[in-house]
Amino acid sequence: MQIAVIDLGIGNLRSVEQALNAVAPNANVLVTSDAAAIDQADRVVMPGQGAVGTWFNALSERGLEQVVRDSLDSKPMLGICVGMQALFGHCEEDGGVDGLGLFSGEVRHFSNFHQQGPAAPRLKIPQMGWNQVSQRLDHALWQGIDDQSHFYFVHSFCANLNLNAEQDCIYGEANYGHQFIAAVGRENVFAVQFHPEKSHNDGLQLLKNFTQWNGK
């Protein structure tokens, strides 16, 4: 089994690679920016860190948008963090960036949703740390993971529950000043705002589930 981890030259992909190697020792994990290799892979992981505008620039510089769109149509695919945010219609970051549009709705800065004023709880941005995820819907990727398990999050932008119409796509939610989308999916695509590769045993379980998932 070939698993391609899309390399856009941003952030640390070693942890994703190493975590996949740990849960699927027989798989061939390839960190790559080669369109042909991504095209030939059985599964694709789309990680992301940093700013979404930079992420999309890197995607187009490497000529990978088409192969990403093809993969989204055809094989098990896992988006992580900015790799999840990129799947929405629009992201507010970097002055506004159009996303891949697999899910409707806009990814916005946390401060849009936090209460303001002296009595409001002071929430640090980025959200950095372990938060509990409510599993709203069953999914093969939740197998063996308890509802309300903690996962590791690092992000300043989030997909808001109410702004995003397709409630049947929302597999997980978490709360940081307001409820936001922690996991979203449709058909062969599953995407998470948190970092499974940094989320200890539950994160490894999710990655293991992904390596065994048939995308249905």
């Binding site: 959200q127 372990w130 938060n131 509990q132 903690h150 999050f153 978490a174 709360n175 940081y176």
Partner: peptide, 8 residues
């Protein structure tokens, strides 16, 4: 369910 405090 606020963010958990971390022990490092």
């Amino acid at each position: 369910m606020p963010l958990a405090k971390r022990i490092i």
